[in-house]
Computed example of a mutant assay.
Amino acid sequence: MKIRLAHLSDIHFGGENVAAVAGAADRIRAGGFDLTIVSGDLTRYAEKPEFELAKAWLEALPGPRLVTPGNHDAPYLAWAERIFAPFRRYEHYIGPAPYQAWRGPGVAVRGINTARGAQPRLNWSKGQISVTQAKAAAEWFEPSDHLRIVVVHHPLIEMIGGPMTARVWGGPRAAEVLTEAQVDLVLSGHIHAPFTWPYPHGDGRTYAVGCGTLSVRERGVPPSFNEVEVAGASIRVTALAWTGSHYEPYRTWSLDRRTDQANP
């Protein structure tokens, strides 16, 4: 199996780094990727002009694409809509909010919406995932899916030393469920910094992979996005940083896949 994925997150249209976003689109168009993934926060405040920019940018990319919402994709200022119909605008411009899915030969990708318009805590921007959501994703995979990927916005388990927290309600239990389902990668955004680490469950071969931001809201890391390449038993994740004129490698990780799933 050989597959190449572009993983972007936290573009925050309305507050995007215009040059970095344009450069990412150019690289994706030239890169021969099998799938482009955006793990949430397409917009800054979920305003309609921001969604229009996001939609136009996505539609200019080669397909296929898979997108999941982030907390910034629920209206920030229109509080009534945020509470009662938080992803109505997202679904109008982008697509289904509960989840999107994609399947190719031997590979399957399933989204889970960890964002909420309101929660019984003051910081509603933090993540939440139910066991029902996690199990529905786990049960969606088929025996022929040798590479299994889940896409969320919030990291289910906190990044050690990260620039901010996700504090996902239900995250640790969901990570266990996905590990039991032999998911290979759980892609996320939210904290604006790239990272990888294995979940502390099972065989240690289910990996969290975080993506940086393409917005001006940098948190100690240049604007960046990830390229994920899978070949046989190896998963290679490269965080590409924007220099102001082009992208170059910022960090690279090599991850081992489960040998019973890896195909040469």
Rank of each mutant, 00 (worst) to 15 (best):
W242D: 00
P249H: 10
L122D: 08
E16R: 13
S9K: 11
W169L: 10
G170Q: 04
G23W: 11
L35Q: 10
R219E: 10
S9N: 08
G14H: 15
A101C: 14
R29C: 09
I94V: 15
P222A: 00
P222H: 00
T213W: 09
I112P: 08
S245Q: 15
H146P: 03
Q128D: 10
T179Y: 03
H12F: 11
S39Q: 06
P69G: 04
G70N: 08
A208T: 02
E158S: 03
T36I: 07
A115N: 04
T165R: 05
N17I: 02
P200W: 01
A115W: 05
N123L: 03
R65F: 08
I28C: 03
T68C: 11
S39G: 07
F195Q: 06
P64S: 02
L53R: 15
D73N: 12
G70Y: 05
C211Y: 00
A231L: 12
S254F: 09
P198C: 00
L214D: 04
F195A: 02
K55N: 14
H192I: 12
E16C: 08
A136P: 14
V168G: 00
I160S: 07
A85G: 09
P223I: 01
V152Y: 01
K2P: 09
H246K: 14
H246W: 13
P172D: 00
V152Q: 02
L122A: 08
A231V: 12
V209L: 11
H154P: 09
E139D: 15
M164W: 06
G232K: 09
T132W: 15
R116S: 05
K126S: 02
L178T: 05
E52D: 13
W197P: 02
G23D: 12
P62L: 02
V151N: 06
G189A: 07
R205H: 14
L214P: 08
V183I: 14
Y207P: 10
Q119E: 08
L53T: 13
F195G: 00
I235K: 03
F87S: 10
G162M: 04
L214F: 11
A181E: 09
A108P: 13
L8N: 02
P75D: 03
Y247T: 04
A175H: 02
A239K: 03
R257Y: 07
D145S: 12
R88N: 07
Q128G: 03
A239D: 07
T165G: 01
H190T: 00
A138C: 13
Y45V: 11
D260T: 13
A80P: 07
G14P: 15
W197L: 10
G161T: 06
R236Q: 14
D41W: 04
G204Y: 03
P86Q: 01
R29E: 09
T243K: 11
G161Q: 09
A231W: 10
I235Q: 04
I94M: 13
W242Q: 01
P62T: 01
H192L: 06
L156F: 05
L147Y: 13
